[in-house]
Computed example of a mutant assay.
Amino acid sequence: MSEPGTYVEKSFKRDTNYITTRITADGRDGFPVEAGRYRLVVSRACPWANRAIIVRRLLGLEDALSMGICGPTHDKRSWTFDLDPGGVDPVLQIPRIQDAYLKRDPDYPRGITVPAMVDLTTGAVVTNDFKQITVDLETQWRDLHRDGAPDLYPDALADEIESVSEPIYRFVNNGVYRCGFAGTQEAYDKAYRRLWEHLDLLEERLSTRRYLVGDHITEADVRLFTTLARFDPVYHGHFKCNRNKLSEMGALWGYARDLFQTPGFGDTIDFTHIKQHYYIVHTDINPTGVVPVGPALENWATPHGREELGGSPFGDGTPPGPPREIVPPEHNPVLALLAG
C-alpha cells in the first residue's frame, strides 16, 4: 500500500521497515546497475512513487529502466496492474506487485508498497526503499543518465539536502498522513500544528530563494513537490489539513507552480488517479467512496514569477524531452493549457 502503518496511542506511525538492498554501480549488494535489467513499479497516485517517476524522467533513464504502472486503487493484498490489458503487467507477467514481493520472500511480512524495483532476471523485488531508490538513481546510475541530465544530488549539497528534507518528511510529507489518520483529537491537533508550523517555515524560506537548496532543482525539491501537488485536491479536505489552501500561500504556491510547469514535474501528475486513490481506498475516512469533482485546476497554469529570484531549473543541464509515458489529457487538463 502507499501508506502502510499502525496506530500508536491513536496516532499514525508509518511502517518504515523497507527492503534496503541497493542497486549500485559496484553491485555491492549483488545487484549492479545494468541497463534493461530492472523494472520500476509505481502508481501515479502515490506521492512516494511519484518521486521516482520524476527522477527517472529528469535523468532520462527511460531506455535503461522500464516502468510498470499500477492502477490508482488497491485491495488489502497489494497494488494491481489493472491499467494493462488483461490486468497483467506486460513485462513482469504478473497481475499484482505482491507477486514480485513473494518471489523475493514467500513469507514476506511487511507492507506491499510502491515504488519497487524488480529484477527482471528473477521477477523478484530488489528494494522498495523509496528514499534510497531516488538517491541511487541520481548517484549510482550516473553512467546511464541522458546527456544534459541535471545533478539532482550534488556531493557538495548532499548534507544540506538531507538536513532540509528530514523535517519536510517528518512534518509535511508524513505530517499530512498523521493529520488524516489521527485517531484522537489530541493526535490530530498535534500533527496539524506541526504541519502548519513547518509549512510556514517553508513559506519563509522560499520567499527569498527559488529552490530549497542551491540554485537549481535537487532531490529536496522532488521530495516536497509530490506532497504539494496533492495538497489542495486531497490533503486540504480529505486529511483535514485545512487552515488554508496551498493556492492561498504566496511563496509555496508560486514555488509549486514553478516546479509543476517545469518539464518532468507537472507532466507526471495524474489528478484523477490521485483523487481516486485517496477517496476510494481510505474507506475509514471516506466510507461512501465518493470522489469529489473539484477543485478547479486551471490555476496551476498561471504565471509564477519565480524567475526573479534567480537560478535555473536544470543548472548546467537541459530539460528532458517529451514524456514517454503519457498522463491521459483528461486526468491533467493543466498540461493542455501550458502547451498553449
Rank of each mutant, 00 (worst) to 15 (best):
residue 25 A to R: 05
residue 193 R to K: 13
residue 105 D to A: 15
residue 207 S to H: 05
residue 12 F to I: 00
residue 295 P to V: 09
residue 159 D to M: 12
residue 276 Q to L: 13
residue 253 W to Y: 15
residue 317 G to Q: 04
residue 73 T to L: 11
residue 273 H to M: 08
residue 293 V to G: 04
residue 1 M to Q: 14
residue 205 R to F: 05
residue 6 T to C: 11
residue 128 N to I: 09
residue 327 V to C: 06
residue 269 I to T: 11
residue 299 N to H: 14
residue 41 V to D: 13
residue 137 L to G: 00
residue 208 T to K: 13
residue 217 I to E: 03
residue 6 T to R: 15
residue 132 Q to M: 14
residue 235 Y to V: 01
residue 120 L to I: 02
residue 42 V to T: 03
residue 222 V to Y: 00
residue 181 F to D: 09
residue 191 A to E: 06
residue 8 V to E: 15
residue 275 K to A: 08
residue 297 L to P: 07
residue 118 V to P: 04
residue 210 R to V: 11
residue 177 Y to L: 13
residue 119 D to Q: 04
residue 83 L to D: 10
residue 330 E to V: 14
residue 175 G to D: 05
residue 91 V to R: 11
residue 273 H to P: 01
residue 315 G to S: 09
residue 88 V to K: 10
residue 247 S to A: 13
residue 7 Y to D: 10
residue 259 L to S: 08
residue 73 T to H: 09
residue 332 N to C: 14
residue 219 E to L: 10
residue 72 P to T: 09
residue 36 G to V: 03
residue 323 P to W: 03
residue 118 V to D: 00
residue 262 T to F: 08
residue 29 D to P: 05
residue 311 G to D: 12
residue 220 A to L: 07
residue 335 L to N: 08
residue 245 K to F: 15
residue 171 F to L: 14
residue 154 P to I: 01
residue 87 G to Y: 04
residue 300 W to R: 04
residue 7 Y to P: 02
residue 252 L to K: 09
residue 156 A to G: 12
residue 201 L to G: 00
residue 207 S to N: 05
residue 74 H to G: 02
residue 254 G to M: 10
residue 84 D to C: 10
residue 121 T to R: 15
residue 25 A to S: 12
residue 320 P to Q: 08
residue 260 F to A: 14
residue 159 D to F: 05
residue 334 V to L: 15
residue 213 V to H: 00
residue 214 G to K: 09
residue 168 I to T: 03
residue 217 I to L: 11
residue 73 T to V: 15
residue 116 A to N: 06
residue 11 S to Q: 12
residue 150 P to V: 02
residue 165 S to D: 03
residue 53 I to F: 02
residue 197 E to N: 13
residue 52 A to W: 04
residue 3 E to I: 06
residue 259 L to W: 11
residue 38 Y to G: 03
residue 277 H to W: 08
residue 243 R to G: 12
residue 28 R to A: 14
residue 160 E to H: 02
residue 201 L to W: 05
residue 199 L to P: 08
residue 159 D to S: 13
residue 234 V to S: 06
residue 114 V to T: 12
residue 335 L to A: 12
residue 299 N to V: 14
residue 225 F to L: 00
residue 54 I to V: 11
residue 27 G to Q: 04
residue 68 G to E: 01
residue 182 A to P: 01
residue 319 P to S: 06
residue 176 V to E: 02
residue 89 D to F: 06
residue 7 Y to I: 10
residue 168 I to Q: 06
residue 319 P to W: 06
residue 65 L to R: 13
residue 43 S to Q: 07
residue 42 V to S: 05
residue 134 T to C: 07
residue 100 A to D: 09
residue 279 Y to L: 06
residue 247 S to D: 09
residue 89 D to W: 09
residue 253 W to I: 12
residue 28 R to C: 12
residue 6 T to S: 14
residue 177 Y to G: 10
residue 121 T to N: 12
residue 179 C to Q: 06
residue 286 N to W: 04
residue 10 K to R: 15
residue 11 S to V: 08
residue 23 I to R: 03
